[in-house]
Amino acid sequence: MLATAVNEIVSTKINPNVVPHLHIWEWHIPLYLFLGGLAGGLLVITSIMIVLKRKFGIGPRDQGDGCPCLAVRIGSVLSPTLLGIGMLFLFLDLAHPLYVWAFYTTIQPTSPMSAGSWILIAFFPLAILQAMLVNKRQLRSFNIELINKVIDWTENHMTIVALVNAHIGVGIGIYTGILLSFFSARPLWSSSILGMLFLVSGISSAAALMLLLAPEDEKPVYSMIDANAIWIELMTVGLFVLGGLTGSANTHGAMMHLITGDINLAGMSYMFWFWGIFIASGLVVPLLLEFLEAAGVHIKFPNVAPVMVLFGGLILRFLIVFAGQTYHTFM
């Protein structure tokens, strides 16, 4: 008899930010999360490449005078640049941007956003220093006294700078997921593996970007990093989906809302974006293409795979941020 029973709720609540569903974060936040993940991934890869080359002699040939290979040099510059652009979107999302200083008047240990705002600031000094050290030959040609002094003081410590940066990069990558996963009121986000998923996705996207930018002789290294990161990302997203499906009614429903959802996002349902664009064209197909490339089967358009990975990484952020809001609040 229970099957025919009804339960209907009529509410006079009209607030557009929460009715009919949470509607607080639009395109700024997913774009920021993507750029943050990309910046973190770039810092992880470039700093590990520096350490591997300096300590173990592994990696593409250095370009003389202690300057690493071209992709590491470009990646090191892009990392803080992209994070800076991402932070601009974060700033634009604030309802009262002029009060942004309030983030830096306190440290709230229980607030991921407070921790994040400080991590973002901590990111820049060493990331910029690394970008300067790997490009010191070019910088010295400008002959700016202050920059020359900074390089003189620190150039013997590049390995330590890179080692610390590898950890900061991991921190930024995880933070972009933790930012969402601490919200227990939002069942889709409330998964501790989201931090790992965004970190691995950031690393695979960063490897794809470096693959696009690297000269021919450096490409195989980044293709290999990308393929490995994609493989780990596939496993992680699998665990994220399984964790949701096997969870309580809240998390199960939220995961189904994402992976089978019919809500329209730019002309396509969540389900098609998730399986078709993110999983198939953002992970599986590029993994196959890079595997074929590594096996010696040369593809006519080698840039297709990394572009697909980057687009897939962007779509992942949009899907998670949007689907987390369109599913109902914790019941």
């Binding site: 607030n15 930010n17 604030l94 309802a95 009262h96 941007p97 009060y99 956003m113 227990s184 939002r186």
Partner: peptide, 26 residues
């Protein structure tokens, strides 16, 4: 005077009791 309108509180509230005031605070 401390609210930046970051909306973290709105995502955190299981009762959806908050809204963004048009003047830029929650």
């Amino acid at each position: 005077s401390l609210c930046t309108g970051c909306k973290a509180c709105m995502a955190a509230c299981p009762y959806d009791a908050r809204y963004v005031h048009p003047e830029g605070y929650v």
